[in-house]
Design a protein around this nucleic acid. Structure first.
Ligand SMILES: [Mn+2]
Ligand SMILES: [Mn+2]
Ligand SMILES: [Zn+2]
Ligand SMILES: [Zn+2]
Lengths: 146, 146
DNA sequence: CTTTCATTTGAGAATCATTTGCAACAAGAA
DNA sequence: TTCTTGTTGCAAATGATTCTCAAATGAAAG
């Protein structure tokens, strides 16, 4: 069993839940994908194995709670996610014009944030630094929109 | 005319749009509110002056583009905003349990971010640092959920 | 293997924030 | 006034996400 599967199973058992075939399939799909994904995209990958979209939506919060995935930039009214294991935390730069998403290291800010958290007695679950604006391709020129 | 009204008018004219009574009323409401607000909340403040909810939704993107308001933490499936003028950029700490929102200064991180932006040739429009987790009230105890 | 019982699931209906279509309106230009 | 362009309220549409419910599954026990 792969790392993230072990971790998910452990998490589920702690809640009295089971690692069912559907859940395992969703987890696998989430980790097979190395870009950001939304519920629909995940569903596309696995509907052939007749896992329902409802189950995808039901599993996503579990993966979040288990700390296996994280919410990223919301685009087009859809929540998007990315898996965590093996990926260092990073900032997301979203171009408002071409919707490109650029990622940069977060470790520089990490310590400042951790320090603040200590002062606030805040238990951090997730840090999300999203910067929106225009990427270098779009910053001058007109709107070659979407 | 107040500062933000001048700025909005200028922005609108640049787009060939007008500062209508409805828009002025919405702008005023947005700046009368010193907490985060969503479309509905804004609407509650001004529906007496028969401004429609649709117009609120149509005006919000204009205020965003004009740089007068910014999107903050999304709660309960609703987009929330806050006005900008006169408010220094700040981070939002969202408690997943009690939904409390704490704000802290961002200026410490600002320079690191600006530096990164320069390297990326990215034109920053908006920075949003959202940290979710558990506030000090909720971090130990059980879920007095809500 | 069979029973038991809580959990899970697919399918489709329901929600609900946000968006749109449209016909009536305003305001400036000609 | 008449033309033109942007605006608005209202109601209907949209679409992501959630919920309902009856049937399926799975672990544990007998
Ligand atoms: Mn990412
Ligand atoms: Mn704020
Ligand atoms: Zn771009
Ligand atoms: Zn709390």
């Amino acid at each position: 069993m792969i790392d993230h599967e072990v971790q998910f199973k452990r998490f589920l058992q702690k809640q009295g839940l089971k690692l069912t075939p559907s859940r395992a399939r969703i987890l696998e799909a989430a980790f097979s994908m190395h870009e950001h994904f939304d519920a629909e995209k995940l569903y596309d990958l696995i509907k052939a194995d007749n896992v329902s979209l409802a189950t995808v939506y039901r599993t996503l919060p579990l993966l979040l709670e288990a700390g296996l995935i994280t919410r990223t930039v919301r685009i087009g009214g859809r929540d998007r996610f990315e898996h965590i294991l093996g990926h260092p935390r990073h900032a997301h730069w979203l171009c408002e014009n071409c919707q490109a998403v650029i990622e940069t290291d977060l470790s520089a800010l990490q310590s400042a944030i951790t320090k603040e958290a200590k002062a606030l007695k805040f238990d951090i679950r997730q840090i999300s630094l999203n910067i929106s604006g225009l990427c270098w391709k779009c910053k001058d020129g007109a709107n070659d929109s979407q």
